[in-house]
Lab assay of single mutants.
Amino acid sequence: NQASVVANQLIPINTALTLVAMRSEVVTPVGIPAEDIPRLVSMQVNRAVPLGTTLMPDMVKGYA
């Protein structure tokens, strides 16, 4: 099972992602792969992401 990126805190809309804001977890459905965490740092989310939410490619500006 592949680990996905999960919000480690509430991430407000247009907030730049940080290492502290993300964690890796095996979840269903699978979201952005955990190995992409370094690439996600400083990218912005295009919606509010609640704690525990799996990050999907369409939630991160410039990711997809």
Results as ranks from 00 to 15, higher is better:
31 G>N: 02
32 I>F: 02
21 A>Y: 15
41 V>H: 01
55 L>F: 07
59 M>G: 00
19 L>W: 14
1 N>R: 07
47 R>G: 05
17 L>D: 00
50 P>D: 09
17 L>C: 05
8 N>Y: 05
43 M>V: 04
39 R>C: 13
36 D>W: 11
45 V>S: 03
54 T>Q: 01
57 P>R: 08
30 V>K: 11
19 L>E: 07
26 V>Q: 09
63 Y>Q: 02
25 E>L: 10
16 A>V: 12
46 N>W: 08
62 G>A: 08
29 P>T: 03
9 Q>E: 13
46 N>Q: 08
24 S>E: 09
60 V>F: 03
58 D>N: 11
59 M>V: 06
37 I>L: 11
13 I>W: 09
41 V>C: 06
8 N>G: 08
62 G>K: 07
26 V>I: 13
24 S>I: 13
57 P>N: 04
10 L>C: 15
4 S>H: 02
12 P>F: 06
12 P>K: 10
49 V>S: 02
26 V>K: 08
39 R>N: 09
52 G>C: 04
61 K>A: 11
38 P>M: 11
23 R>L: 05
18 T>Q: 07
4 S>T: 04
56 M>I: 06
37 I>A: 05
28 T>D: 14
27 V>D: 03
32 I>N: 01
53 T>I: 09
49 V>Y: 04
43 M>S: 04
2 Q>H: 11
55 L>N: 03
38 P>L: 14
15 T>C: 11
37 I>Y: 03
59 M>D: 09
54 T>S: 02
24 S>V: 12
50 P>T: 10
29 P>A: 03
33 P>I: 06
22 M>W: 00
16 A>P: 13
5 V>E: 02
1 N>A: 15
58 D>E: 12
4 S>P: 00
2 Q>E: 12
18 T>E: 07
62 G>P: 03
40 L>N: 00
2 Q>R: 10
60 V>T: 03
11 I>E: 02
3 A>P: 12
25 E>Y: 07
25 E>W: 09
21 A>F: 15
19 L>G: 04
27 V>G: 03
57 P>K: 07
37 I>F: 02
45 V>Q: 00
62 G>E: 08
32 I>R: 02
4 S>W: 02
28 T>S: 11
13 I>P: 12
18 T>I: 06
56 M>C: 06
15 T>G: 09
48 A>T: 15
38 P>Y: 13
60 V>I: 13
63 Y>M: 04
10 L>Q: 11
3 A>Y: 12
29 P>M: 04
9 Q>N: 08
15 T>A: 11
44 Q>M: 15
57 P>Q: 07
57 P>T: 05
62 G>S: 08
47 R>I: 12
9 Q>P: 02
14 N>D: 13
3 A>Q: 09
24 S>H: 08
54 T>A: 05
12 P>D: 08
31 G>D: 00
53 T>A: 13
49 V>M: 02
21 A>P: 00
43 M>F: 09
29 P>N: 03
24 S>Y: 08
38 P>V: 10
16 A>K: 13
34 A>P: 05
